[in-house]
Design a binder for these strands. Structure first.
Length: 567
RNA sequence: GCACCCGUAGCUCAGUUGGAUAGAGCAAUAGCCUCCGACGCUAUGUGCCGCCGGUUCGACUCCGGCCGGGUGUACCA
């Protein structure tokens, strides 16, 4: 049974008010000692024409004989409920243990499809630390929606089309060396790409040549296409290596090039609906409804070529037809807010009501204390280097703490990568991250290693006992540390729902961090395996340990972070 | 100029969609490994919630204005 729902039902039947109103009003008190659930009576003051404290006191009496509610206490205008601890504890722990990895799942999203577009790096460019924001947030969101029962589709909208490939082809033809490129593709391609920009400052005609080559590419020229395909293949191999490290995968790598033959239709539709207008030689859709000063959405450039807005609209239409999505989420940085606002508005104007399901999930920048991240100048911090550095550091810590560990490398990988993912998922998305090795590799306090450590400790305790957990007597779970932990286990699904509502994985991150903290407090203050602990108390506490470990593992999974059995 | 976002403890950030005494981590100080693992636990404190008005029983939260910072602002993505 759900104690919250039970209490809401009962208040509803007593007051005769709308259930929705009650459900919305009830809240968790700021402190455990105030109770498990609170009903602020202020909202009744007007209709009942009584002071809130009086209402609270009257309601409290109705709960005096209730087997599920230990106590209902009026405090000021609040009516605070204390659940029966034994019933609540038993209810929660047995549910976690019975459902295992399925605990905290829901069928909320049954038969609805959510698309998550994320990561989307540019081909032939390094996969740098900035890409991790989209990758980590998207990966986590996909798992969160999946947890809630949605069918999810993971889309990698590769940046594999555009003038940049003209540049790359020109650079390759001038300075490319196949033997070097085979050995270290991305670095070498980056090198000649950077060189292109340096040279182009002296010889602007290179830019024209690049545009010319992109045009050839669009026209299906053999040489250009072959080169492009080659660059794309080489890049994918490198990207997939990083994705493997992160445990990230995709259902589709259809990038911008995939939509290159699907844009004519979009242009036709917009023209037929009379939305296209000429402006300074380009074909645009004017968007006065977004504000007088909003620039129009360019559909065709003055040279007749398409632009990324056209491609994104074509992609959205394709996705609607292919997946009939409920939500189409774009995990793309804040700088592109205007772009998405524009294309969503264009799609609405085209009369596509499914466009309402499109959503831009933005996120902040990865900044550097001194220099700016710029591919053009070759100043990049490779994501792979950051991950390896973190794994290396973890290895050193393990080396000093537990030199005899067997699967050192595997554990170091999970912890090292988890630590990096955690720092990208710990705050609200829109906050910028200032990159520093110190903070990135800080494993203390609020960090993945902290949570992983708590889990490993729990598993260690379980390994040291052979007591059968079934049929524990939960009336023996009496301390505040234990009960607070139990209430938090019960709140897992709420955290997941909040995360999905706001498209904010950090709700889950914060949840699991608090869970780890409460778990640490619990096992530090309540002896579990000590000899003088009675067997049946041991049994009940072990059940709580097992349940806590289960939920920590499930929550970490939603963040893309792996739990380790020992560390 | 205009649009959007942000301003909370020394630092990095939460604050449950208007409610009870504004909270965590880091940093600082003092304790805790004859009890399961010290990447841990316990204790100690700091806030004109950027400023000024308004809305109301009640505002960190909503509205208006100002100050300060970030991002974007048509043929790149």
């Amino acid at each position: 049974m759900d104690f919250r729902e039970y209490t809401i039902d009962k208040i509803t039947s007593i007051t005769g008010l709308d259930r929705e109103t009650i459900a919305k009003a009830v809240e968790t008190p700021p402190e455990q000692k105030l109770g498990d659930l609170a009903f602020p009576c202020f909202i009744l003051a007007r209709t009942l024409k009584k002071a809130p404290p009086v209402i609270a006191a009257e309601l409290a009496e109705k709960f005096s004989e209730d087997e599920n509610i230990e106590k209902a206490q009026a405090v000021g205008g609040y009516l605070n409920f204390f659940y029966s601890r034994t019933a609540f504890t038993k209810n929660t722990i047995t549910e976690v243990l019975e459902k295992g990895a399925d605990y905290g799942k829901s069928d909320l999203g049954k038969d609805k499809t959510v698309l998550v577009e994320y990561s989307s790096p540019n081909i032939a460019k390094p996969f740098h630390i900035g890409h991790l924001f989209s990758t980590a947030v998207g990966h986590s969101l996909e798992r969160i929606y999946s947890q809630l029962g949605y069918d999810t589709v993971k889309l990698n909208h590769l940046g594999d089309w555009g003038t940049q490939f003209g540049k790359l082809i020109v650079a390759y033809k001038l300075w490319g060396d196949d033997s070097v490129i085979e050995k270290d593709p991305i670095n070498e391609l980056l090198k000649i790409y950077v060189k292109f920009h340096e040279e182009a400052e002296k010889k602007p005609e290179l830019e024209d040549e690049a545009r010319e080559y992109f045009k050839k590419l669009e026209e299906g020229d053999d040489e250009a296409t072959t080169l492009w395909q080659h660059f794309r293949d080489l890049s994918l191999v490198e990207f997939k290596r990083v994705y493997d490290m992160l445990g990230v995968s995709f259902d589709s790598y259809n990038g911008e090039s995939f939509y290159s033959d699907k844009m004519d239709e979009v242009v036709d539709i917009l023209r037929d609906k009379g939305l296209l207008t000429d402006s300074e030689g380009a074909k645009v859709v004017e968007l006065p409804e977004l504000g007088e000063n909003t620039p129009p959405c360019i559909i065709l450039k003055s040279d007749g070529a398409t632009i990324y807005a056209t491609r994104d609209i074509a992609a959205a239409l394709y996705r609607h037809r292919t997946y009939d999505f409920y939500k189409n989420i774009y995990v793309v940085g804040t700088p592109q807010s205007l772009h998405f606002k524009q294309i969503f508005a264009v799609m609405e104007k085209a009369g596509w009501d499914w466009a309402k399901g499109c959503e831009h999930v933005n996120f902040g920048l990865v900044k550097f204390p001194d220099k700016k991240l710029s591919t053009r100048h070759g100043d990049v911090v490779f994501l792979e280097d950051v991950l390896n550095e973190s794994i290396q550091k973890t290895c050193e810590i393990i080396e000093t703490n537990s030199p005899n560990m067997e699967n050192k490398d595997e554990v170091a990988k999970k912890i090292g990568i988890g630590a990096i993912l955690y720092t990208f998922l710990k705050n609200s998305r829109e906050k910028d991250i200032v990159f520093s090795w110190d903070s990135m590799l800080d494993f203390e306090g609020e960090s993945a290693p902290y949570v992983q450590y708590s889990y490993a400790r729990g598993k260690s305790i379980l390994r040291r006992s052979d007591i059968e957990i079934a049929d524990a007597d939960y009336s023996l779970v009496t301390t505040d540390e234990e009960y607070t932990l139990v209430t938090h286990l019960n709140a897992f699904l709420d955290a997941v729902k909040d995360a999905a509502d706001k498209n904010e994985p950090f709700y889950v991150n914060r949840y699991v961090t608090i869970l780890a903290r409460l778990f640490n407090k619990f096992y530090n203050s309540c002896p579990i395996l000590k000899d003088d602990v009675p067997e049946d108390v041991k049994k009940a506490r072990l059940a709580l340990v097992k349940a806590s470990c289960q939920v920590i593992k499930s929550a970490l999974y939603l963040l893309g972070i792996e739990a380790v059995e020992s560390m």
